[in-house]
Simulated assay, not measured.
Amino acid sequence: MKTSRKFTAAIAALSLVAVSGCVTDPNTGQQKVSRTAIGGIGGAAAGALLGGLIGGRTGRIVGAVGGGAIGGVVGYKMDQQIKQLKDQTAGSGVDVTPTDNGTAILLNLPDGVTFATGSYDISPGFQQVLDKVAANFIQYPNSLIDVYGYTDTVGSADSNQRLSEQRAQAVANYLISRGVNSGRIRWMGFGETHLKVQTGDGVAEPLNRRVEIKVIPISQQDIQAAQQQQQGQ
Rank of each mutant, 00 (worst) to 15 (best):
T117L: 09
Q81C: 14
M1R: 15
T193L: 06
S119K: 12
Q139V: 08
P26E: 04
V215Q: 10
G112M: 01
R167C: 02
H194S: 02
V33R: 10
V96S: 06
L144I: 11
R57L: 08
D158T: 15
S15R: 12
W187G: 02
G112V: 02
K86Y: 05
N208S: 07
K6Q: 04
I216D: 06
Q31V: 12
Q128F: 08
G179H: 05
A48F: 04
I70N: 01
G72Y: 06
D158M: 12
G56W: 00
A37F: 11
I176H: 08
E192V: 09
V203W: 09
K86N: 02
N160C: 10
K77G: 09
L53P: 13
A44M: 05
Q220K: 11
T24N: 04
N101E: 03
V17Q: 11
V62Y: 03
T193Y: 01
N181R: 07
G93D: 04
A45V: 10
R162V: 00
Y140D: 04
T114D: 02
V96Y: 05
G125K: 11
G67T: 07
G125V: 09
V211T: 15
L175N: 03
L207S: 14
Y150R: 11
A69W: 00
N142L: 10
I122W: 06
F7C: 13
P110C: 04
Y140I: 04
L49K: 09
L175R: 11
V197F: 08
A170R: 14
N142G: 14
F126I: 15
Q220D: 11
F7I: 15
N142A: 15
D121M: 14
V19H: 04
A134R: 07
G93T: 11
T28Q: 09
G189N: 00
P98W: 05
N101A: 14
G118A: 05
I223T: 06
S156F: 08
P217S: 10
T97Q: 15
E205Q: 14
S219G: 13
V73Y: 06
V74Y: 10
V180W: 00
L109A: 08
I213E: 04
V113T: 15
Q233S: 02
G63I: 09
V33K: 12
N208T: 02
A37T: 10
E212V: 07
A69E: 00
A116V: 09
D121N: 15
G112W: 00
P98F: 13
Q231A: 14
N181A: 00
P217K: 10
T199G: 10
L106S: 14
I138R: 06
I223M: 01
V129D: 00
N101M: 07
G118N: 03
V62M: 05
Q30W: 07
R5L: 10
T3K: 13
G91C: 01
P141L: 01
G72L: 10
A168H: 01
A134Q: 02
M188Y: 01
V180P: 09
K83E: 04
V33D: 07
V133E: 03
Y140N: 05
G183C: 05
P206M: 08
A45Y: 04
K83M: 13
T24P: 11
Q81H: 13
G200D: 03
G200N: 13
I216T: 15
R35K: 15
V94Q: 03
G66M: 00
Q166S: 15
V171Q: 11
T58E: 01
K32S: 06
G232D: 07
Q221C: 05
I122H: 04
V133K: 12
